[in-house]
Design a binder for these strands. Structure first.
Lengths: 328, 328
DNA sequence: GATGAAATTGTGAGCGTTAACATTCCGCGC
DNA sequence: GCGCGGAATGTTAACGCTCACAATTTCATC
């Protein structure tokens, strides 16, 4: 910086002012400084800057299971929204949810001087733990959110599940079976709750519940069991991956989808329209979620701690994997 | 730090030594300092540290198309391998490949004081541009790599494509059609080259070539065309997503897979085994790629600029979407 | 041309750490 | 008991930037 100042014949402070877009610099001085900067290929040293301003313009994000559609979409969307708001986003992926590993993740972010942390971990206990760590910076939750939580934006999983189940009941199915996600995931619990509620509201008993873990394989295994059960005419799988495994099992067992059994997924992965049959599923608007999360974070940074929970409503996407149940 | 020093009754330098694991601190002094640190909940300020050491222990990564399987797997694996080597990894996603936007991405990373940059952008021109930007830090390329490139690790796309095509020819297909990825992508070109070469080697003419863009939709469109062509009995799709769209189109047109037409994909996405039919495809070992990339980066940081290109060999995964061609 | 207020520029200190060097401590041999 | 040497600790000066304030210039006004 001193070099630039010398080259432009001004003081280092004037260079600093130019860099920060201050109004108080005469146009020709600014031009001279900018020329010198370009000339010398100078870059401002952010460490020094951070040291004195104490503002990193960086927000941290804790994420898990980045291989899954939802988490990865959320990570990308938050990152993107953050950049657009002039923030860098540091992502740290955790592999397990031990206090140890979460503490380490938070520590890592704090070491990077993040101004806030966005937690995108749907694991019930993990969420509580991160919250209880209270890290002197605002924490915003974007996944595994339930109504009434402060500083949280999420997608209304329960509503999405109801959309799916009600669609099947509307078609005339007596009840709907459900392949759950791993129930330590808040989302999995919420989708399951939506499935139950939709039945309760119509005063019918839900169909059988099978445990899955998001993987196509677990959907496949559930499908093998469902194929044996003549009572089941409709299944709501808690995500598209399991729906794919499920349908595969049904095909393998000679059961037609949707002729004999209707299937609805959750996520609307890009290949959903091209599965055979094209998958009816629930679409979540992740990019909106990312934007909202960053908005909320910025708000928190401005000292405005919003105690309300924003829930984005998902939408049902009708395709070919659901049909009126075959009579008799 | 001063506070900690005061609390422990030592000088700040001693605290610094404890923090850096220096040998020259007596055990009881160290214990006292550590107690004070825990007591006060002190965290070292990395900005100040970076300012004086000039070592950020951070590597940057430029990535694109994080929604696609390959890029996202690579991003995760590099990040992971980096963390394990004690480095933070900053990811910046670019959306287009203009000089402008790449320059900005590199700039953003440089501003974060990264010690090296891993470029995971398969776009031909983009790669050259980033290289030509010469950013005073080592640059390692992990995607869109071809043999003979310095400082690069990649997966041998051409070999993978040959595996796929040779398998089909071995089954007895006269030739193989190909749905390409967008040809600005190095990978797309390499897979296409492998497809051509496999034919050349056997002195047969390749089947028709159709242009795709990685999306299931483009695979679907290609599929509609292929379904009309009685000559085509086998197709190599440049990724699984297009293979899915392709198979959907064939089904929709009443063509059986693999009975009438065999299909091979590329990527081995998690749902591949559960598609109908289960997809024969080429598997790439992304986690190994990430580790190799980080190794190479560390080597470069140690001043050892490896001019050789490491290519990881992919593997063919046989499933049910390929079969011996129907006679006549 | 003097005056003063506003616009522009400069000066010095300090952010929290590490590096380099200086100092103190401690135990040992004579 | 003295001096010596290495171990342990302390002191001081950067690192490159912004902040608060001081100094200078500019320009309209009379």
């Amino acid at each position: 910086m001193t070099d630039v100042a010398a080259a432009a014949g001004v003081s280092h402070q004037t260079v600093s002012r130019v860099l920060n877009g201050s109004e108080l610099v005469r146009a020709d001085t600014r031009a001279r400084v900018e020329a010198a900067i370009a000339e010398l290929g100078y870059r401002r040293n952010n460490a020094a800057r951070l040291l004195v301003t104490n503002r990193s313009r960086r927000i941290g994000m804790i994420s898990a299971h980045l291989v899954l559609h939802g988490p990865s979409m959320i990570a990308v969307s938050v990152q993107d929204a953050g950049h657009k708001a002039g923030y860098d986003v540091s992502l740290v992926a955790v592999e397990d949810f031990s206090t140890q590993s979460l503490r380490e993740a938070v520590g890592r972010l704090l070491d990077e001087a993040v101004e806030a942390i966005v937690v995108a971990v749907a694991h019930r206990e993990a969420l509580e733990q991160v919250r209880s760590l209270d890290a002197a910076v605002p924490i915003v939750v974007v996944q595994g959110v339930s109504a009434g939580q402060p500083m949280a934006v999420g997608i209304d999983q329960e509503a999405g599940a109801r959309l799916a189940v009600e669609h099947l009941l509307d078609l005339g199915h007596r009840h709907v079976a459900h392949v759950t996600g791993p129930l330590e995931w808040v989302e999995a619990g919420q989708r399951r709750a939506g499935w139950q509620l939709a039945h309760e509201e119509r005063h019918v008993l839900p169909g059988p519940e099978l445990a899955g873990d998001w993987s196509p394989k677990s959907g496949y295994e559930a499908g093998l069991r469902i194929a044996e059960d003549p009572d089941v005419t409709a299944v709501f799988a808690a995500n598209d991956g399991m729906a794919i495994g499920l349908i595969y099992a049904l095909h393998a067992k000679g059961r037609d989808v949707p002729g004999e059994i209707s299937v609805v997924g959750f996520d609307n992965v890009p290949e959903a329209p091209y599965l055979w049959p094209a998958l009816t599923t629930v679409d979540q608007e992740f990019s909106l979620l990312g934007r909202r999360a960053v908005e909320l974070t910025l708000q928190a940074l401005a000292g405005d701690l919003d105690p309300s929970t924003q829930l984005i409503r998902p939408a049902l996407v009708l395709r070919d994997s659901t049909a009126v149940p075959r009579l008799g």
